[in-house]
Amino acid sequence: MSFRRFTFHTSKNRGKWLSALLWVPVGLVFTKCGYTVMAVRGTSMQPTLNPEPLIRRDIAVFDRYSVSSLHDVRRGDIVAFKSPGNANELLVKRVLALEGDVVQTLPPYPDKEVTIPAGHSWVEGDESFRTFDSNRFGPIPLGLVDSKVMFILWPLNRFGWLSSTTGGEKISSQGSPWRKGHAEVERERWRSSRVTVKSKLD
């Protein structure tokens, strides 16, 4: 029994099938630890994701590598995380605050202000009226975070890196792109006004 005969030269066809089959785990590991493509459902991240949910769903590339290997989650990132109440469900929200920050909460939450505990984060949808987020279930452990939204694949008119989808258009001082950009800046300002970032001196 020689090594060579045992592995590949049994029969030409079978060897081919076997070596094709051996690439399946490589692909699986790539999607579990690297990058994956998923469709986004629901309206809670409007207008950043799914601005026209009745017509089409957004399809985006999610970056698992920087979350699971580098543990790099920042304020402002849009993340997919496992719902704290249901381990089989992924939710997509924006990270508002990380550990040590103080957040002014929105109505359904019982307390007016929360200090985020160690290893936790505060997540909210961009559309604050129809969203199931930290204002309902409180700060979430960072261990629940699965991936970051990195790149929008579909629809094609918003194809591109996530950060450039809003700022990338040429903004003139009037017209709808300008108004959109202005609204975006206003929302961003409102969001950050509710978060007191923990100072580095403490």
């Binding site: 452990p141 261990g143 975070v145």
Partner: peptide, 8 residues
């Protein structure tokens, strides 16, 4: 379990 206080 993954620690709720530290994802690593």
């Amino acid at each position: 379990a993954v620690s709720p206080r530290d994802p690593r």
